[in-house]
Computed example of a mutant assay.
Amino acid sequence: MIKAGIIGGSGYTAGELLRILAFHPQVEIDFIYSTTNAGKKVSEIHQDLTGTTNLKFSSTVTADADVVFLCLGHGNSTKFLQQNALGENTVIIDLSNDFRLTPDSEFGGRKFVYGLPEFYKEEIQQAVAIANPGCFATAIQLALLPLAKAGVLPEEVHTTGITGSTGAGVQPSATSHFSWRNNNLSWYKPFNHQHLGEIQQNIALTGAKDSKMSQVTFMPYRGDFTRGILTTNYLKFEGSADQARSIFEDAYKHTPYTIVSDEELHLKQVVNTNKCLIHLHKHDNLLLVTSIIDNLVKGASGQAVQNMNLIFGFEETSGLQLKGSYF
């Protein structure tokens, strides 16, 4: 058994993390740190955990936990680590964007490894700190990196993605409350979404040495639903549909959660799971790659646990055998 701590315990990602870790066979939850809810029962805030745990939020941090998950807003993980000392042997898994880019990946004597298991498994297994990928970044990279690795990703890629309201965080805003979001659809941050940096970085790192640098043009949308991400990525591809499928099947033949499907995709196939499903469609000289994930699980907390499993030598799927909420 290992002891786990959670920093910033009241948000959506922390709630999903607690739901997963509460039933993980090799994990004991040591503390859940929250400055705003210290002393309250966790189930008062995360009401889906009523009857599951009697844990309370804490105002203190246990320095010698085996693993600490940082579920803080972007920019706040750096501040927390500057103000709080963790044990030298404590593994840090950060779910913000503070350490995802290479120039930001070293902090406090630690090297943060980018935590996309499908492409960086060996590095993750040796890591002491993980920069967990963003939700859109996960869905888009799993759709594009096999082509980059094969050297056939063209210079121009067009991507559209739609995400549920939980992607905006637990604090209500003008574009996330029910009466605005319901029966509505809108785009946001066109061409400059914050996840583009890590996407472009890893395309460059993964791409074949003789391939030209690809530029992803990304248009994100807010969806009228709570959770899930669907991306469509289309690009020029001169090979056949069978050749495209072979590239993806080869890339994901040893991965437990990224699956190439013959069927057209919809979000209910992945909501509440750690899966990413990929579908390929060839039209003339264009290839359409569709990917779907749950933004809170594979796009955040589930992937964080997957990374933890790899670091501590557990089965990669431990605690993550989750069935989709299909009905």
Rank of each mutant, 00 (worst) to 15 (best):
105 S>R: 12
291 S>G: 15
132 N>M: 05
12 Y>Q: 04
245 R>I: 09
298 K>W: 01
182 N>G: 07
205 L>K: 13
290 T>A: 11
228 G>F: 03
42 V>C: 02
2 I>W: 01
166 T>I: 04
121 K>R: 15
61 V>F: 01
204 A>D: 11
22 A>L: 11
268 K>G: 11
187 W>A: 13
151 G>Q: 07
29 I>P: 00
95 L>E: 05
240 S>G: 03
40 K>C: 11
208 A>K: 13
256 P>C: 05
171 Q>N: 13
26 Q>G: 04
198 E>P: 01
17 L>F: 01
188 Y>D: 04
141 Q>V: 06
176 S>H: 13
260 V>Q: 03
281 H>K: 15
168 A>R: 14
59 S>T: 06
22 A>I: 02
49 L>V: 03
68 V>T: 09
219 M>R: 10
113 V>N: 02
218 F>C: 11
38 A>L: 04
129 A>N: 06
65 A>M: 02
103 P>V: 12
59 S>H: 08
97 N>R: 10
145 L>T: 10
124 I>S: 02
8 G>N: 01
145 L>C: 05
242 D>M: 13
229 I>K: 02
144 L>Q: 03
297 V>E: 08
78 T>H: 11
12 Y>G: 02
97 N>W: 05
84 N>T: 15
44 E>G: 07
297 V>C: 09
83 Q>A: 14
164 G>P: 05
103 P>H: 12
142 L>I: 12
190 P>E: 13
253 K>H: 14
198 E>Y: 05
300 A>L: 03
275 K>D: 11
176 S>M: 13
189 K>Q: 14
156 E>P: 00
11 G>Q: 02
30 D>Y: 00
135 C>H: 10
34 S>L: 03
29 I>F: 02
224 D>C: 07
43 S>F: 12
110 R>P: 09
259 I>V: 14
166 T>Q: 09
320 L>G: 05
141 Q>S: 15
136 F>I: 12
14 A>P: 01
231 T>P: 01
17 L>N: 03
104 D>T: 04
247 I>L: 12
209 K>V: 14
302 G>F: 06
193 H>R: 05
264 E>A: 13
14 A>T: 03
197 G>V: 09
241 A>Y: 10
264 E>V: 11
2 I>E: 02
303 Q>Y: 02
49 L>K: 03
30 D>E: 13
255 T>I: 06
91 V>P: 02
274 N>K: 14
59 S>N: 14
202 N>Y: 15
147 L>H: 01
327 F>R: 05
174 A>K: 07
45 I>P: 01
118 E>C: 12
321 Q>K: 14
240 S>T: 15
83 Q>R: 11
209 K>P: 06
219 M>L: 15
45 I>A: 04
13 T>H: 11
174 A>I: 08
97 N>Q: 10
1 M>F: 07
71 C>W: 06
238 E>S: 15
242 D>K: 14
247 I>V: 14
300 A>R: 01
